[in-house]
C-alpha cells in the first residue's frame, strides 16, 4: 500500500492582541507584533501528523509569506513535519483570498502527486475561512470542511471525515486528492520533540519558491489578482471589560439586562 503525501497549509500571523490600528494614519501596525503559527493551522498540522503516525508517508508544510517567516515555520518541523515550502515573492504581497488560493494552488500543482491538503478552519488575522474551499476550487478537487476526525484509505484512494454542521455532524467521503479544513480546537497539537527540533534547523529542510519557480501569472497574484480593497480601518471597541454596575429597582435591572442582551445578540 502506498503511503500518503500530505500537505498542510500554514499561515504565520501576528499575535492578534498586539496588532493596532494607528488612529492617525489609519494603517495597521503589525511590525512589532510577535509572530506565531495561526492557531487553527496547528490543529491541521496535528491531524496530518496523526495520519502520518498511523500510515507513514510525509507531511509537508506549504506557506506563503516573506522569508522572515522561516523560524516560525520551522516549529512545524520540530513537531514532525518533513519539509517546508515557502512561496515567497514581492509579487505575492497584498493578496486577498482569490489571489492567495491561486498562488497556493500553483504551489500544490508544482509539488505534484499530493494526496491530500489540510488547512486550518480560518486564520486568526483575516478570519475569512475561505482558503480551503478556494484552494479546492482552483485545483478542481473535492473538499471536506470543518472536519473533526479524518481517515485516509490509500487502497480505495478516499478520505472520510466527520464534518461539523449545525447541531451535529455528518460523515462524508470524497475521492483523493482532496482539500480538508480542520475544525479549530478539534485536537490538541503535540509539542515539539526536541530531538526533531535540533534537526529542524537544517537548511535542506526548506525550499523557497518565487513567482518564476511557480510559473504564476502576475495578473493573478498579490494585489493585482485581488478583487477586494480595504477602504477603511478602525480599532474595534476596547476589549477591556467595562465593569459597569447595573443598579436600580429589580425592574430597572431586568430592563437594562435585556438592553445589553439585545445589543449583543439580538
Amino acid at each position: 500500500m502506498t503511503e500518503p503525501r500530505i500537505v498542510v497549509c500554514v499561515k504565520v500571523v501576528p499575535k492578534p492582541e498586539e496588532v493596532r490600528v494607528d488612529p492617525q494614519t489609519r494603517l495597521l501596525e503589525r511590525a512589532n507584533a510577535r509572530a506565531e503559527i495561526n492557531p487553527p493551522d496547528m490543529n491541521a498540522l496535528e491531524m496530518a501528523l496523526t495520519l502520518k503516525d498511523r500510515l507513514s508517508g510525509t507531511v509537508e508544510i506549504l506557506s506563503m509569506g516573506p522569508p522572515y517567516f522561516e523560524p516560525v515555520l520551522r516549529v512545524g518541523l520540530g513537531m514532525g513535519a518533513d519539509h517546508i515550502h515557502l512561496l515567497s515573492d514581492r509579487a505575492f504581497g497584498g493578496a486577498d483570498t482569490l489571489a492567495t488560493t491561486y498562488t497556493l494552488a500553483h504551489g500544490i500543482e508544482r509539488l505534484r502527486s499530493v494526496d491530500i491538503v489540510l488547512c486550518g478552519e480560518e486564520s486568526s488575522d483575516g478570519a475569512t475561512g475561505q482558503v480551503p474551499q478556494g484552494l479546492a476550487e482552483w485545483l478542481n478537487w473535492p473538499q471536506l470542511t470543518l472536519v473533526t476526525e479524518l481517515e485516509i484509505d490509500m487502497e480505495r484512494h478516499v478520505a472520510r471525515g466527520q464534518r461539523s454542521i449545525k447541531g451535529g455532524y455528518e460523515i462524508l467521503e470524497v475521492p483523493l486528492p482532496c482539500v480538508v479544513s480542520v475544525k479549530t480546537a478539534s485536537n490538541e497539537p503535540r509539542f515539539m520533540d526536541f530531538r526533531l527540533k535540533a534537526q529542524a534547523a537544517s537548511p535542506g529542510r526548506m525550499k523557497v519558491w518565487d513567482a518564476a519557480a511557480l510559473k504564476t501569472d502576475v495578473n493573478h497574484t498579490g494585489l493585482a489578482g485581488s478583487p477586494t480593497r480595504v477602504s477603511g480601518l478602525a480599532s474595534a471597541a476596547s476589549r477591556e471589560r467595562k465593569r459597569e454596575r447595573l443598579t436600580g429597582t429589580s425592574e430597572e435591572i431586568i430592563k437594562a439586562l435585556i438592553e445589553v442582551i439585545r445589543n449583543s445578540v439580538m
Partner: peptide
C-alpha cells in the same frame, strides 16, 4: 456565514473570479 453558506460562497467566488467578504 454558516458551514454550508461559507463553503458554497468561497468555492463559488473562485469559480466566478470575484471577491468575497467574509463574516
Amino acid at each position: 456565514a454558516t458551514p454550508d453558506g461559507r463553503d458554497l460562497a468561497a468555492r463559488l467566488a473562485v469559480r466566478l473570479r470575484t471577491g468575497l467578504n467574509a463574516d
